[in-house]
Design a protein around this nucleic acid. Structure first.
Lengths: 252, 252
DNA sequence: ATCATAGTCGTCTTCCTGACGATAAACACT
DNA sequence: AGTGTTTATCGTCAGGAAGACGACTATGAT
């Protein structure tokens, strides 16, 4: 089969972003309101077209910066800068997922510490952090009693996949630190796990586990009292990316 | 941004397949010889263009059937038929990964029991099962002393990612049974783990673990002696997909 | 001074795992 | 028939990890 441009159908390729953070003890995702059809006025995940000379990860990092101002981590660099964790999630290509044309979307997952209010991107008239349960309950009612429209396109599925990826990945990797500020306490890290998994963890056993897992946490020497109560030691993320032994999500 | 077909660059979208099986105690992947440029004559992963009206998973299943005759499992169906396990792996979109044009490839991972010799697909002049170490040693020398050309495109990276996915996924899921015939013995399952991980496992501890993990194995009542030695019980895969506790890959 | 809030250290029991001894049931020889 | 070889299966023991939970410590608030 020689090179023949007419031998394959043309696709549009986009990146969509599942940007997760922990705010007020709950796992939140970044949503943007669509300013044009289809799904005009509905909430959606941020994203956009991949440019002609751009790699997929570059496109995802560019969209992340446009929507949040966050720089993505260089995967090779140690986790010391203020950037967010960014990784490819999965690709969605149902022929009917976009009514306009054939669009294949390469979804990415970004994890970030708690941020100020998001700034809307160029093609979105609004943007907000919303608890993931609120975004995922299709056709239900939000906390304020107003009906909640489901996310545009197949973005509810993408968000659900991203949340599940985050939930399972903090078990066996040090990724939970990506939700924390550069310096954090054991209690703050525990509240991240509790928010992402939606469970309560025993503070004593949690403390024993994370401080006993080699390479997970490095004490910085300082202490803080910003949570109230007895001052807590400050830590930063250690070099380990794979946790051994892993953190186990409680069953049931 | 209204709908404007000229607002986005057109991409070709392909699926590439990492098809793994265990043959003669070693983990093997399906490779096809390219019949046309670029990389003519070099080994590559099977794959092809996604059609205009096809979902990504449909395209992957179609390519798998064309290359091997295997039917992919319906993910909803229980693991009883003879089909192979098929799941999306990752997407590769470097602008220069194909010298002809902009191609985004959605790689899929397939796991199959040992099969007869592969049949070549339409656009491949040859096909074979090769040990993954042989396909991954770029520019080295094969067992027969002949120089080994690296895989075409970025297929070495894709294969490496697929192998790593398989290696980690059999730890915490029952996926290793996808390498086995519908009925198998504990020893056969152990040899799958040994081949995929490249380690030796203690038969006694392995037997205790797999028979003690609820939902992993269901005895069929029969026994077999096809491996020589004392007859072994036959099992089929149980309903559990997530193993608790997981099988742990020995370190170092 | 007392209380509430967090953080940190220990203890105890249970379960999982790795190392390894011992037995069982087939086959291939002699 | 006996002997060795191979593979399967059961049991024992010690070390480590994890859940449950008691006890103590160091702050700020009333």
């Amino acid at each position: 089969m020689p090179y023949d441009p007419s031998a394959f159908p043309p696709f549009a390729v986009t990146v969509d972003l599942v940007v997760l953070t922990v705010r007020r003890h709950s796992l939140c995702a970044l949503a943007v309101r669509r300013g044009e059809p289809p799904f005009q006025g509905r909430w959606a995940l941020p994203g956009g077209f991949v440019r002609a000379d751009e790699d997929l990860s570059q496109a995802a990092a560019r969209e992340l910066a446009e929507e949040t101002g966050l720089r993505a981590h260089d995967p090779a660099a140690p986790a010391q800068d203020n950037g967010a964790h960014l990784e490819q999630l999965a690709t969605y290509g149902d022929p009917k997922r976009d009514p306009r044309m054939r669009v294949v979307s390469v979804a990415h997952l970004a994890l970030a510490p708690d941020l100020p209010a998001p700034r809307a991107g160029g093609d979105a008239s609004n943007a907000r952090w919303a608890p993931v349960e609120e975004l995922l309950q299709q056709g239900g009612y939000g906390r304020d009693g107003e009906p909640v429209a489901p996310l545009a396109f197949d973005h509810a599925q993408i968000l659900a996949d991203g949340v599940e990826r985050a939930r399972s990945k903090i078990e066996y990797s040090s990724l939970a630190t990506a939700f924390c500020t550069p310096e954090f306490t054991v209690g703050e890290l525990r509240r991240v796990y509790e928010a992402v998994w939606g469970v309560a963890l025993d503070p004593r056993n949690f403390h024993r586990k994370v401080t006993g897992t080699p390479g997970f946490l490095v004490p910085t020497g300082g202490t803080t009292t910003r949570q109230g109560g007895r001052p807590a030691q400050l830590f930063r993320a250690g070099g380990a990316t794979l946790l051994n032994p892993p953190m186990l999500r409680p069953e049931v």
